[in-house]
Write a protein that binds this DNA or RNA. Structure first.
Length: 569
DNA sequence: GCCGTTTTCGGCCCGACTGTTTTCAGTCG
């Protein structure tokens, strides 16, 4: 997968062009880079099909450059630029307050090429003497170097959520605060969060800013103004807070929820209607047309529906809302059961009874017990076939005692290198729903990997492929296989792809879900290894929503009777 | 360099904060 490599190169070209005061091109390169970064498909495949120009933001010139790079392994245009400016802009850009222009300036005047050089220049107090820099800037850069290692580290949504909720509570405790909302990528329920954006309604902004900049856990105040302040928490999380009037709050919510791309399209749309949109409202000339609520602003722009935050990723949501055709997104309350759970029969930490108790308290109609089973060693405490059958009997017995909820017999088996399953068909047949997944040998040629997964799907006893891409956010890359072929196989064999709700997995991710919607349905499973983790369902639902899923796309929104029919048990 | 419910040419989001300026540039989101 060369996507990130190509994106990085385009970002760097953008930075160098910007440092040279080139107009508009930097943005063009950045747009292209961002699209490529977010592709769910390998750019090499797109190039081979001759469809580079179909990528949003990639036109004739950039596509030629990408093709040259993929074909020859280098891009002359880029190497020329780098020869002129041999600067590690990616590294230097992580220093707060240092952008491409100043970085290039530091190279020209002081020969700074990377973080190491920058440290030296700061140490020798050379930066303060440069025109346009000064003592304070030098000091800021010195602090920025220390923080650079920490910054840019994104945290999982599940780690951020408790912090966000606590900040919300603290701000609410201040009597001057009328409203608090955590917005930004948190509100859009992105799988990882870089920083938190908080909006507050208050008539006493100064008081709120004083309170916020002295907040417990604050490590450093980055910015403090009458309308905006930023604090770096000791956890490394940056929190931005803005205070607004009640009357502008909707426009502010809209603006700070983003995404940036959603906003740009929305603002451009406003211009086309001879209006101007900012965080203070939608204006026609001097007159404020709408600002109080998001609904009001969207409506005034001619959109027929309010766009849920999870959809605001510039994937066609604005055009779709103009036509009034947005999906009616699945909600947590639609989910009638968890279809991926472990217990202490394999590597889980809670008993079947404890898990069932949790399922009941969540109001579920059913849930599966899908412990690890099979012969592949690396999986902790895999059940052998005898134990799988024994567990099945135990579940049957428990079901007679359980009132109002049904336990389903399941097992998470393993896909061997050749695509066969490490549990016999005879045993798989005794299960209500059979799940399988890749847990070994994550690297093999794309063709082989594709065949391996499809072979598993063709086993008539297999119902679900769990965490299909195998990625672990921040630590393991997704498996390399042809997703379209697997999608076709899902349609053909009736095998379902899972949306794994475990925060490090969230697999399928929203781009794959978006692409698959309508071609196959999905199951949601938490992959809980203890009862409390069954609450991860909300993250899976969020991911499904980000992939535009409706209730009908999710199998565990079905009543048990329908689920039985679908899986034939 | 890209793109089109205003356009195939002529535009390209917008405002806050900071530091260094004496009216603004750079950075950030």
């Amino acid at each position: 997968m060369k996507n990130l490599e190509v994106a990085k190169m385009l970002y760097e070209i953008a930075d160098i062009l910007e440092a040279q005061d080139v107009q508009f091109k930097p943005r063009a390169y950045r747009n292209a880079a961002r699209s490529i970064e977010e592709l769910s498909e390998d750019i090499v495949d797109i190039w081979k099909r001759g469809e580079l120009e179909e990528i949003p933001g990639v036109g004739e010139n950039i596509s030629k450059k990408i093709a040259e790079y993929l074909e020859t392994g280098r891009l002359r245009y880029y190497t020329e630029l780098k020869k002129e400016f041999p600067v590690n802009l990616e590294e230097l850009g992580k220093v707060e307050g240092l952008g491409p222009k100043r970085a290039i300036m530091l190279y020209k005047k002081l020969g700074v090429r990377n973080l190491e050089d920058l440290k030296k220049a700061v140490g020798q107090h050379k930066i303060r003497e440069l025109e346009g820099f000064g003592e304070k800037n030098e000091q800021k850069i010195a602090e920025g170097i220390g923080l650079a290692a920490e910054s840019g580290k994104r945290m999982l949504l599940s780690q951020i959520m408790p912090m966000a909720q606590e900040l919300e509570r603290k701000l609410h405790s201040l009597k001057e605060v009328e409203k608090v909302d955590v917005v930004g990528s948190y509100r859009r329920r992105k799988e990882t969060i870089g920083d938190l954006d908080i909006l507050v309604v208050s008539k006493n902004a100064a008081k709120v800013m004083d309170f916020f900049t002295k907040i417990e856990d604050g490590l450093k105040v980055l910015v403090k103004g009458p309308a905006k302040s930023s604090v770096l928490l000791s956890s490394g999380l940056q929190v931005d807070l803005r205070v607004f009037n009640e009357s502008d709050y909707g426009a502010a919510m809209l603006y700070f929820t983003g995404s940036k791309e959603h906003n740009i399209v929305l603002r451009t749309h406003a211009i086309s209607k001879r209006m101007k949109l900012s965080e203070y409202g939608l204006f026609r000339g001097e007159r404020k047309v709408a600002a109080k609520s998001e609904e009001e602003v969207y409506r005034a722009l001619g959109l027929k529906q309010w766009i849920p935050p999870e959809l605001r990723e510039n994937m066609g949501e604005i055009g779709t809302s103009l036509k009034g055709k947005l999906p009616d997104l699945v909600e947590l309350k639609d989910i009638r059961g968890d279809l991926h759970c472990h217990t202490d029969w394999s590597e889980g930490r809670s008993s079947i009874e404890e898990m069932a108790g949790m399922g009941k308290s969540l109001g579920y109609e059913y849930m599966i017990i899908s412990d690890h089973g099979g012969t592949l060693v690396p999986i902790a405490r895999c059940m052998n076939e005898k134990k799988i059958l024994e567990q099945g009997k135990r579940i049957d017995a428990l079901n007679k005692k359980l009132d109002g909820m049904t336990l389903l017999k399941g097992c998470e088996t393993n896909i061997k290198d050749d695509g066969s399953i490490d549990v016999s068909n005879a045993t798989l047949k005794t299960l209500d729903i059979a799940t399988t997944a890749i847990h070994t040998k994550f690297k093999m040629p794309k063709k082989e990997m594709t065949k391996r997964i499809i072979t598993a799907m063709e086993n008539e006893h297999i119902d679900i492929i769990a965490h299909p891409t195998g990625r672990l956010i921040g630590s393991r890359a997704p498996l390399d296989f042809d997703f379209d072929e697997v999608l076709d196989a899902a349609k053909r064999t009736g095998t379902v792809l899972e949306i794994n709700s475990y925060p490090e997995r969230l697999d399928l991710d929203y781009l794959h879900i978006f692409k698959s919607r309508g071609k196959t349905r999905f199951t949601l499973g938490t992959d809980a290894h203890e009862k409390a983790q069954m609450r991860f369902m909300e993250f899976g639902v969020a991911q499904a929503r980000r992939g535009w899923c409706e209730k009908k796309d999710i199998l565990n929104a079905l009543p048990l009777k329908e689920l039985r029919k679908t899986f034939g048990f």
